[in-house]
Every structure is written in structure tokens, then in C-alpha cells.
Design a protein around this nucleic acid. Structure first.
Length: 304
DNA sequence: TCGACGTCGCATAGCA
DNA sequence: TGCTATGCGA
DNA sequence: GTCGA
């Protein structure tokens, strides 16, 4: 069963294209193809042998050929070519928050940053901050992310995640009670995925400023990654990223559905909605641009 | 053959 | 100081 | 790059 390997190389292919600065839609095409295979209920090699590869959604001539080459020879020539022109540790580098493809390309081109160690060096000796668009704050943020990247522990077990959610909810109820309505975990925590990457919490509030500010001030916050009127993001205990979103009452249900996912589930649901003449997004469910629901999560599933 | 492909909030940098 | 563009993440 | 109009 090589499905995992195929998914992996297609996702990495997308990352390499992104680093190269390729068209965003092309990049997404590779990611979509990877997702299709990840969700495929059968052995990709079997599909391949039976010549059914391009019956899979998102796989056309070009990607089919690459998958073909991979299954035949264990490698993809174009992939190797792209990889040869990129930093040695490109995938590691891109996994550092705030160090995206554009920044990576700039640092590689101007300073020859190939590895995580290189990145640390150019951050510490200040040379990265001499590049256009790389102000002090941005460099500081990247350095913090890099340290986090090296220390963590990026996956959180569901048990610990649940504890963290309880901690946040407790805090909000104590310090901002009455200023918000419903409060719920979302994302992979709510889906009880065994391990999660970060923690998403949703709160019902017309104006999220106060509650997000309370959120950013709770005990154990070691960094405020962002805090606005509708969205806040913190680092708890130096390790755990927790995001809080404030949404108005009429779209709380839709947002809960949307941010609970999973991504594949959302894609599937939208498809169903589309066929039935509806449109679903994080703000509600619509028919002819008329809102027909969104206050409750059930609205979405009920209508469809 | 050709246009659509999700969209938005936040932080930051750079400029007027 | 305010505005806009960009990168990033989700 | 893929899909559908």
C-alpha cells in the first residue's frame, strides 16, 4: 500500500511549487490531488494498474503521469529538479510559522539559507533584517517560531487538549461572564481527533474585543500571537497554540460547523449544498443569496 | 477553448 | 500618523 | 493543473 507515500510526495511537490512562486491554483491542484488519494478507500496501486487514475477527481494528465512515474520508478523527475533548486531543508523551513514560501525564497536567494540552522544564524546576526520587508518585528516573530519549532512537541494529545479547552473556558466564564453567549470547542479538538495541532474555540459575541482581550490576558499566556475584534491567538505555557474566534449569534452555528470540519467533510457538505441549490459558508446557509439559517449548527444539516 | 478555482482577519512594512 | 500592499495562516 | 461551461 503506497497511498501514504504518494500523498506525501504530492504534498511536497505543492510545497516546492509554492517555494518556486508558481501559480496558486496549480499548487492547490496538487494539494487537491493529494487529498483525493488520502481519502481514497482503496489501494492506489490497484487503481493505477487498472488505468483508473484519471477517473479520480483532481487528477488529470499531468498529475497522472507523475503518479505513474512514482509508482514505476519510485521517483518523479520534476520533483527532483525542483528539490535541487530549493534549500536542502525546505520542508522543515516551511513548517516554521511566519516563515512562508516568499520569505524562504528571499532568504535563500539573498543569504543562502538552506537549513534551520542557517535561519537561526541569519536571525541572530541580524542579516535577515536587512532584507526588504523584513522588519524587526517580523524577524522577532520568526525567531520565536523557530525556537518553538525546535522545542516542540507540535502535536497535543486529545486529553491534554481537552484540559486546555476547559482552562480557557473557565477563565472566560470567570472574567467575562455575561459578555458572551455560547462557547464551544471547534476544530479537531471537537472532533476528538487523537492528537491535535492547535486548539480552536468559538464564542458567540457581537463584539469580540472584550472577550478576546480577556482571553489574551489569561494565566499561562506566554505570547499573544494576535488579538483583534473577531479573532485572537495565544501561546499557552510556551507550547500550545489556542485560537479564539468571536462570531455573531446569527452565524454561530454555521461557524461552528465550518470550523469543526474536517476540511474534507466541509468540501463534501458544500458539494451537497450546491446540488441542492444552496450555498454554505462560515456565515450561514443561503438560498439565492437569502440567508436561510446559520444560528444553529443543526440549521445546516437540517436544510440539506 | 477559456475562465474559475474561498475568502478573510491580522500583523507588519513601507510610503505619503 | 494614516493609508495601502503584502505575506501568512486558517 | 483540473474541471466544466
Amino acid at each position: 500500500m503506497k497511498n501514504g507515500a504518494v500523498v506525501d510526495i504530492l504534498e511536497k511537490f505543492a510545497n516546492l511549487l509554492e517555494f518556486k512562486g508558481e501559480n496558486l491554483f496549480k499548487i492547490n491542484a496538487y494539494r487537491r490531488a493529494a487529498r483525493t488519494i488520502a481519502e481514497l478507500g482503496e489501494d492506489i496501486e490497484k487503481v493505477w494498474q487498472e488505468g483508473r487514475l484519471d477517473q479520480l477527481p483532481g487528477i488529470g494528465d499531468a498529475i497522472r503521469e507523475k503518479v505513474n512515474q512514482f509508482l514505476l520508478e519510485g521517483r518523479i523527475r520534476q520533483f527532483d529538479e525542483l528539490a535541487a533548486a530549493a534549500p536542502r531543508e525546505i520542508f522543515d523551513l516551511l513548517s516554521i510559522q511566519h516563515f512562508g514560501p516568499k520569505t524562504a525564497a528571499l532568504a535563500f536567494k539573498e543569504l543562502g539559507v538552506e537549513t534551520v540552522a542557517d535561519l537561526r544564524r541569519v536571525l541572530e546576526d541580524g542579516s535577515l533584517s536587512t532584507l526588504p520587508g523584513m522588519g524587526p518585528k517580523k524577524c522577532e516573530n520568526i525567531l520565536k517560531s523557530l525556537k518553538l519549532h525546535e522545542s516542540s512537541s507540535s502535536q497535543i494529545s486529545i486529553g491534554l487538549a481537552a484540559d486546555l479547552v476547559a482552562r480557557v473556558m473557565d477563565h472566560l466564564e470567570k472574567t467575562a461572564s455575561g459578555r458572551f453567549g455560547r462557547l464551544s470547542a471547534a476544530g479537531s479538538v471537537r472532533r476528538y481527533k487523537e492528537t491535535v495541532h492547535d486548539i480552536d474555540i468559538l464564542v458567540e459575541a457581537e463584539d469580540g474585543r472584550e472577550i478576546i482581550s480577556a482571553f489574551a490576558q489569561m494565566d499561562g499566556v506566554t505570547r499573544v500571537l494576535g488579538a483583534g475584534a473577531t479573532k485572537g491567538s495565544i501561546l499557552l505555557d510556551d507550547r500550545f497554540q489556542v485560537d479564539l474566534r468571536a462570531v455573531p449569534s446569527e452565524s454561530f452555528g454555521a461557524a461552528l460547523q465550518y470550523f469543526t470540519g474536517s476540511q474534507e467533510h466541509n468540501v463534501h457538505l458544500r458539494e451537497i449544498a450546491k446540488k441542492a441549490g444552496y450555498k454554505v459558508n462560515e456565515y450561514g446557509i443561503f438560498h439565492d443569496d437569502q440567508r436561510v439559517g446559520g444560528q444553529f449548527e443543526e440549521d445546516i444539516y437540517h436544510v440539506l
